[in-house]
């Protein structure tokens, strides 16, 4: 893939991640879990895709772009912190686990782990912002939800991977 194509792709993915991030806001997770700014982490699909078909560096950049833009568009400093913590932890976990993809883990497991770390990151950020350890009470619920989320994300990735082979967007040198 040419450099220009890569950059263009990164841009598109950032926009997509941003759109997903903003769309997530419509899901009223706050009714269940009263931490302002808490999210399911749908946008992580894009980050994981980037890890698979581009490179870790580009994946981290897309994540950063998405987080900064999202908090600029419709958020606050706390929003930024939550997204950043969650996103970074999720991305790093995915990157690590991908090394053993196909042998030990499928996309479902990796996605679930990623979602779990995303939630852990959010709670960690909440603890810092609100200066109290007690928000950890919401973690069990969030953790359990990362399994179905993992299936959703994993399915998307599986389907994508199947189809990506037909398009000339992929290159041989991806993160694996």
């Amino acid at each position: 893939m040419s450099r220009t194509k890569r950059i263009a792709l990164c841009g598109m993915l950032s926009a997509l991640a941003l759109a997903l991030s903003l769309m997530e806001r419509m899901i009223p997770l706050e009714l269940l879990i009263p931490i302002p700014g808490i999210k399911l982490g749908l946008a992580n699909v894009v980050t994981m895709f980037a890890l698979l078909f581009l490179s870790p560096k580009e994946a981290y950049s897309i994540l950063l772009c998405r987080v900064v833009l999202a908090s600029l568009f419709a958020g606050s400093v706390t929003q930024f912190l939550f997204s950043l913590m969650g996103g970074l932890l999720a991305l790093t976990t995915t990157w690590l686990l991908l090394h053993w993809h196909d042998r030990w883990f499928s996309f479902y497991g990796i996605s679930a782990a990623s979602a779990a770390m995303h939630n852990f990151g959010q709670i960690l950020a909440a603890m810092l912002v609100m200066q109290t350890v007690d928000v950890i009470a919401y973690l069990p619920l969030l953790l359990v939800s990362s399994i179905p989320m993992g299936f959703v994300t994993g399915t998307i990735l599986e389907v994508l991977q199947k189809h990506m082979r037909h398009l000339r967007l992929t290159s041989r040198d991806n993160a694996m």
Partner: peptide, 17 residues
Amino acid sequence: SILTAVALCFLLTGCST
């Protein structure tokens, strides 16, 4: 069966508090 399990998980998370 997997899809049912997933659906159930979602239900679980929904009806706790």
